[in-house]
Nucleic acid binder design. Structure first.
Lengths: 143, 143
DNA sequence: AATCATGTAACATAATAAGTATCGTGACTT
DNA sequence: AAGTCACGATACTTATTATGTTACATGATT
C-alpha cells in the first residue's frame, strides 16, 4: 500500500457531510472516494466511536455528522482513525546495548520527535470549520 | 515490516567503521546489526555508490569508510540508502477534481511539507563527525 | 589451486492498508 | 407481516515494501 490515506479520506467525507442535508450511505461515500462500502464502514467506525458521526440502519439510514466543526481538529480525526504511525523511518532497538547505536538512535529520534511535534501541533491547530471556510471562500471566488 | 531502519543501521555501521582499523566484512557487520550479510551488502551498496565507503573482494577484503566525517550529514546517508518516503500518511489524488478534496489535501500536504522540511534541515545539520564526537564524549564521561 | 569476500539474482517473510464477498441484524415501507 | 435497505462484522485476498535467505558467479589474495 502506498500511503495511509484514512485521514485524508475521512476529512474529505466529513466536509462533504457538513454541506449535505440528511444521511449519506456507505455506498454513496464509497463512490465518492472511489472505493468500497466495507472500507468506508471500517474507517468511519473510528469516527463513530469518537462521536464525530452517527450511523443509522434501515430505510433512509446512513451516516450523519455530529461533530462541532469548530471543536474538531485534523489531529482529532487522525487519532479517531487509529492515529497510525507517522514516519516510515526509525530505528530498531530503541534501547540498544551498543553505545554507538544509542548515540545514533538518540540523534535520529530527537529529530523525528521534533518533526512529529511540529506536525501534531500543525494538525491540531486546524479545525474542520476552518477547512469548510476555505472551501466556501474558494467557491465564492470563482464568481 | 515495522520501520525502515536502513538509515539507523548505516549510521551505526559508519560510526563503527570510523573507529575501526582496516576493512570490516559483511559478515562481521551483519552480526553487529543482527541481520544477514546479503542485507548488509544490499544496503551498503548505496553508500558505496555515493562514495562514502569502498568495498574490496578477496582475502583481507571487506568494507572501508572513505567519507570525510565532517562533510557527510545524516541527510546525506538517508539519501544514499535510497531516501525512502518519510511519512506513512498522505493523500491519494494529489490533484483531485473535487474541490473539497483539494482543500483537504492542500491542508494536509502543507503540514506534511513543513514537517518534512524541518526534519530534512535537522538531519542535514548533523554530521557523522558530530555523532562520533558525541560517542567519544560519552565514553570519556564514564570515567 | 584453494579460499575468502563481494555482487547479484531469485525467492520467502512480515506487516499493514485496502479491496472483496458474505451473512447477520435492525429499521423503515408497503 | 413481508420485503427492502443500510449498517455491523467476519474472513479472505491483494498490493507494497523492507527484510531475510539461499544459491551461484566473480574477483583478489595466499
Amino acid at each position: 500500500m502506498r500511503n495511509d490515506s484514512r485521514l485524508s479520506r475521512m476529512l474529505h467525507v466529513l466536509l462533504h457531510m457538513a454541506r449535505h442535508e440528511g444521511p449519506m450511505t456507505s455506498d454513496e461515500i464509497a463512490r465518492m472516494l472511489g472505493t468500497n462500502a466495507v472500507v468506508v464502514r471500517r474507517t468511519m467506525a473510528g469516527l463513530r466511536d469518537s462521536g464525530y458521526v452517527r450511523s443509522e440502519k434501515g430505510h433512509g439510514g446512513g451516516w450523519v455528522i455530529e461533530a462541532d466543526l469548530e471543536a474538531v481538529s485534523l489531529l482529532d480525526v487522525h487519532r479517531a482513525v487509529g492515529g497510525p504511525r507517522l514516519f516510515m523511518i526509525g530505528s530498531e532497538h530503541p534501547n540498544a546495548n551498543c553505545a554507538v547505536e544509542r548515540v545514533v538512535n538518540e540523534a535520529l529520534e530527537s529529530a523525528l520527535n521534533e518533526a512529529e511535534a511540529m506536525l501534531v501541533a500543525r494538525l491540531g491547530k486546524v479545525s474542520l470549520a476552518e477547512l469548510a471556510r476555505r472551501f466556501d471562500q474558494r467557491c465564492r471566488s470563482t464568481f
